[in-house]
């Protein structure tokens, strides 16, 4: 198995996909860093201060005013209310929700890229892992060796898992290094709150916990990894089922984007919560924002994703080991 994984790794590295992904991530992080920097600067100019308490207080008042507007939807109102309560909680407990520094940037970057950007990068690798062998024709050589088919597929799957781990590591390292140039490299120990519960009545703060940002980040990374593995496994399955890489990518891309859109509008369609793509924003549960559909929580989403993962993996292996190769 070790040798097979080395084979897959060799092909992966020779295809230079990881380098391309690293470049894409690097460019994006630079963009985000600049955007964030600009945002901080304009805020400072507008308010004439960089005191986070003043800024947060101002944000709270601004949100309150937006809430009083009659033009916003009930759903949006609810989300604003929750974030308002949360901001107030931070302020009341004298904790800066976004301590400036690279670790905070990293956290924000992860939280924003968990449902689309990182899955996209994963997809780039996952969706042609098997289908490229088909389109190259090399599958015929691969499957006529004295190695059982499930082993060949497993080696590919494990390589995918490793590649996903690497992509997330690259995202983490690059976002830390690049944003640190602007925001400084400190802030690992900054306190951060988690355990907010979003209920029907609003934000429940009875189970709030305080933890160091490094720990929070590690958890975030774990969740991002899990989401990526699930998305990767689904693309992997498509790669097995559909021999054309482009078609597989298209299907996956469509569902990811529809997920991003759906999360904003499915609140009244309850059974939509069983779709994998509305369950991707796991880090939001850690942060404590309103779920897209009432009643969703971390354990529900993890379980749903787990089921999708298991089914996708089963289908991949079932089909791959049985199917005739033309």
């Amino acid at each position: 198995m070790n040798k097979l994984i080395q084979n897959e790794m060799m092909k992966l590295i020779a295809k230079k996909r990881l380098i391309v992904i690293a470049i894409i991530i690097g460019v994006l992080v630079m963009l985000f860093t600049y955007a964030q920097y600009k945002q901080v600067q304009t805020q400072r100019e507008k308010l004439g201060t960089s005191d986070w308490r003043t800024i947060l207080q101002q944000q709270i008042v601004d949100t309150t005013n937006r809430l009083s507007s009659s033009r916003i939807t009930d759903e949006w109102k609810k989300q604003l209310q929750i974030s308002l309560q949360q901001q107030q909680y931070y302020l009341d407990h004298d904790i800066n929700p976004s301590e400036p520094g690279a670790p905070t940037f990293m956290r924000i970057f992860l939280e924003n890229s968990i449902d689309l950007f990182i899955p996209l990068m994963v997809m780039v690798i996952a969706s042609d892992l098997v289908s490229s062998e088909h389109s190259l024709g090399s599958i015929k050589l691969l499957l006529t060796r004295p190695v059982k088919r499930w082993k060949v597929l497993l080696s590919k799957y494990l390589t995918l898992c490793l590649a996903i781990s690497l992509i997330i590591a690259i995202a983490g390292i690059l976002s830390y290094l690049i944003s640190g140039l602007v925001f400084g490299y400190k802030g690992w120990g900054a306190p951060i709150l988690t355990g907010f519960n979003v209920t029907e009545t609003g934000l429940n703060t009875s189970e709030v916990k305080l933890m160091g940002q490094w720990k929070f980040l590690l958890m975030d990374f774990g969740l991002v990894w899990f989401v990526s593995i699930v998305v990767g496994t689904l693309s992997f399955m498509l790669s097995v089922l559909i021999r054309s890489t482009a078609a597989g990518m298209g299907v996956m891309l469509a569902s990811l984007i529809s997920g991003a859109i759906l999360t904003n509008m499915v609140s009244s369609w309850e059974s939509a919560k069983y779709f994998f793509m509305v369950n991707l924003r796991l880090t939001d549960y850690m942060k404590g924002t309103a779920p897209p559909i009432e009643g969703m929580n971390l354990s529900f989403s993890i379980q749903t994703l787990f089921v999708w993962w298991a089914v996708a993996l089963f289908v991949s292996f079932f089909v791959f080991t049985r199917r005739d190769v033309y």
């Binding site: 790794m9 590295i13 490793l162 781990s165 997330i168 990374f221």
Partner: peptide, 23 residues
């Protein structure tokens, strides 16, 4: 590279376990 990937894989797994355990 494989070795590094394995290490990160373990690290993220710990993070996931921690997040779920904490929850």
């Amino acid at each position: 590279i494989t070795g590094i990937a394995v290490l990160f894989c373990l690290l993220w797994l710990i993070g996931l376990g921690w997040a779920v355990g904490e929850y």
